[in-house]
Amino acid sequence: MARKQGLLHSLVHHATEVQTPAAKIYVYEAPVRIWHWLNAICIVLLCVTGYLIGKPLPSVPGEASFNYAFGYVRMIHFGAGQVLAVAFLYRIAWAFLGNHHAHQIFLPPVWSLTWWGEVWHEVRWYLFLEKTPKKYVGHNPLAQLAMFGLFLLPLLLSIFTGFALYAEGAGIDSAWYSAFGWVFGLLGDSFSVHTIHRISMWVIVCFTVIHIYVAIREDIMSRQSLVSTMISGWRYFKDDKE
């Protein structure tokens, strides 16, 4: 175990299981919490408006020149997308500047067998095969894996495909297109990129539903606080056993 103290090990968050009992630990610093809730608002706005862009509401009556209903739906979508992207950049910066937990969701240690063992333990806990959950300061390993694979990667895909589609509206001679036009070279024609963008939305919606359920359930059934931690930043432990 002593040999694992390399650079990589110091960089990567190994979902630290708590060994010494403590009443409470400051886990999520204010920038992480602000990002989380700002992100949540943006995602709700983006999913609702995004769904409506693919499946528009019934037509509005009157002259076209007096209406801008679909234009506003798209404007909210683009605005929320810009905010989400900037917030994401800020979150990446905080992964470097913040505490040990701030970069946990960016780098799951998928090469570590010990870590996979703990993922498996969490899977068994959710399948009611383990009686006792472990205590974690940050995310538990399964949560870390889900955050990375079902949230972070689809979010990145949404951001890149979204900006590529936005760049098409701005025009192929725009700076947006110079920055994101390569996405079409990678993923294919515009319509296929629309399809990928929509599938990634559904992945994020599915993740969100699971995320909310598990957060509430863990708050009740695990040995540490969950929901209040993302508001106050403090993690409380309900028992002082190891």
């Binding site: 528009p56 801008y68 209903a69």
Partner: peptide, 10 residues
């Protein structure tokens, strides 16, 4: 203009 207004053939 009908697209931006939200006026579509159904």
């Amino acid at each position: 203009p009908h697209f931006d207004a939200g006026q579509f053939a159904e």
